[in-house]
Nucleic acid binder design. Structure first.
Lengths: 204, 204
DNA sequence: CGATCTACCGGAGGGGCCTCCGGTACTCAG
DNA sequence: CTGAGTACCGGAGGCCCCTCCGGTAGATCG
C-alpha cells in the first residue's frame, strides 16, 4: 500500500557521537579479531563482544545498536577485504572460465583461512542462518554466476544454478577450513573435486 | 613408557544412583530434542542444558559429569540411530558401489535432517571441532572407505582418500541441511554433483 | 542565542554456559 | 552389622549473551 513511496530523505544529519562511537567500535573489534587466532590450535579463542565494547569505551548497548548481530560487526570490520574477494580480478578474467573460477575459489579459501578471528566471532551463529550473510552470499552468487555464464558460453562449464555451486563451495570451506582439524591440502583437493563435477559431461 | 599395560579392571561396580541419573538425563534430553524443532523455521529453538538437568531432576553438575560436552550428550541420545546410519544395509550392499554410496549418503542426509533438535543442541560448538565427533567421523570414514574399496575394485569409483569424501559429504550437509535456508532439493543435487567427481576420469 | 525534540547512550537484568569443590550416601571389607 | 573410604551429587560463582528503557547531549528551529 505504501507503494513506491520514496524515502523522505531524513534531513537531520547523523550525530557526531554516533559516528565516533561506530569508529571506536570498529577499531576495537579489528584489534580483537587480529589478536584472537592465538597460536595454540586447541584454544577456543572466541572474542567476547562485551570486551570489545569495553575496549572501545562504550556500553554494550551501543555496540548492539550499531551492529545488531555478530555477523554485522564482522562484515563491517572486513568490508574492504570482502569487496576485494567478491570481485573478479583481471588475471582471473583472462583465464579460461573454469580455471578462473578455480582461481577465484582459491582466493576465497585463502581469505577465509586468514580470517580465523572472524570465524571465531561468528561461531555459534551459523547454524541459524549463514556463514555468509544473505547479502554476502548474493555477492558470491553473482561472481559464481558470471564465471558459469562464461564457461557455458565457451563449453568449459556445465549449466548449473549459481547458488548450488556457491553452496558446494561454502560446504568445502565449512568442513575443511572452519573445523579445527583442518588440513590445508584437503581444501585444495575438494575444490578440485568440485571442479571436476562442473565440467560438461563427456558426450556419451 | 607405560607400554602395553592393561587397565586394572576397576573392581568396584558403578553406583546405583549414578546409573539411574544417567538414565534420567538421557530420557529428559531425548524429550527436549524431540520437542525442540518447533514448527516456526525462524525460531531459534536451541535447548538449554540447564533445563534438561532440571527436567531430569538432577543438578547441572551431574549432567556435565556424565556428558562432558553437548556432543557427548547428543551422541548418547541417538546412539542406536547412529549405529544404524553408520553401517551398510543389505540393499546398499547389493547395488553397484557407486550407487550404494549414493544411497547411503542419502540415508545419512535424511538422518541429519530429521534430527534438527540434535543440531540445535550442537549449535555453537562445531566451529571448534566437529559436527561429527572424532569417533563418529571415524565410523563414517569406515563406511565410505568400504564403498570406495569396492568401487575401485569394479572400476565404478576413483581411488580417493575416504576422509576427503567424508569431508565433502559433511560439507554438503553443513551448507544445505544445517542452514536455516535449506532447500531439500539442493542437498540431492549437490550429492549427485559429488558423485560425478568420484567417477573415474574418462580415459583421455 | 535559547528552547525543543529526539537520536543515541549505557548499563541493569534475566538467562545460559561451564567449573569447581564441600558434603553425602553408597559400596565393600572386616 | 558397622565402619571406612570414595564415587558421586548439586549448586554457587564467574563470565558472557542480548534486550530493554530512563536519561542526556546533540542538532535544528524560532
Amino acid at each position: 500500500m505504501t507503494g513506491s513511496m520514496a524515502e523522505p530523505t531524513p534531513v537531520r544529519k547523523a550525530r557526531a557521537d554516533g559516528r565516533r562511537n561506530r569508529e571506536l567500535l570498529l577499531a576495537a573489534a579489528h584489534d580483537a579479531f587480529v589478536a584472537a587466532p592465538g597460536a595454540a590450535p586447541g584454544a577456543a579463542s572466541a572474542v567476547s563482544l562485551e570486551k570489545i565494547a569495553r575496549a572501545a569505551g562504550v556500553g554494550i548497548g551501543t555496540l548492539y545498536r550499531h551492529f545488531p548481530t555478530r555477523e554485522a560487526l564482522a562484515e563491517a570490520v572486513y568490508e574492504s577485504e570482502l569487496d576485494e574477494v567478491m570481485s573478479i580480478t583481471d588475471a582471473e578474467s583472462l583465464l579460461p572460465p573454469d580455471e578462473g573460477l578455480r582461481a577465484w575459489m582459491n582466493r576465497y579459501a585463502t581469505f577465509f583461512a586468514a580470517k580465523r578471528g572472524m570465524l571465531d566471532v561468528l561461531r555459534g551463529g551459523w547454524a541459524s542462518g549463514a556463514i555468509a550473510t544473505p547479502m554476502t552470499r548474493q555477492r558470491a552468487n553473482a561472481v559464481v554466476g558470471e564465471f558459469l555464464a562464461r564457461g557455458v558460453a565457451d563449453g568449459s562449464l556445465r549449466d548449473m544454478a549459481a547458488d548450488d555451486v556457491t553452496a558446494a563451495m561454502l560446504g568445502v570451506m565449512l568442513s575443511t577450513v572452519a573445523g579445527a582439524s583442518a588440513e590445508p591440502g584437503q581444501t585444495q583437493r575438494l575444490l578440485d573435486l568440485l571442479l571436476v563435477g562442473l565440467r560438461p559431461a563427456a558426450p556419451a
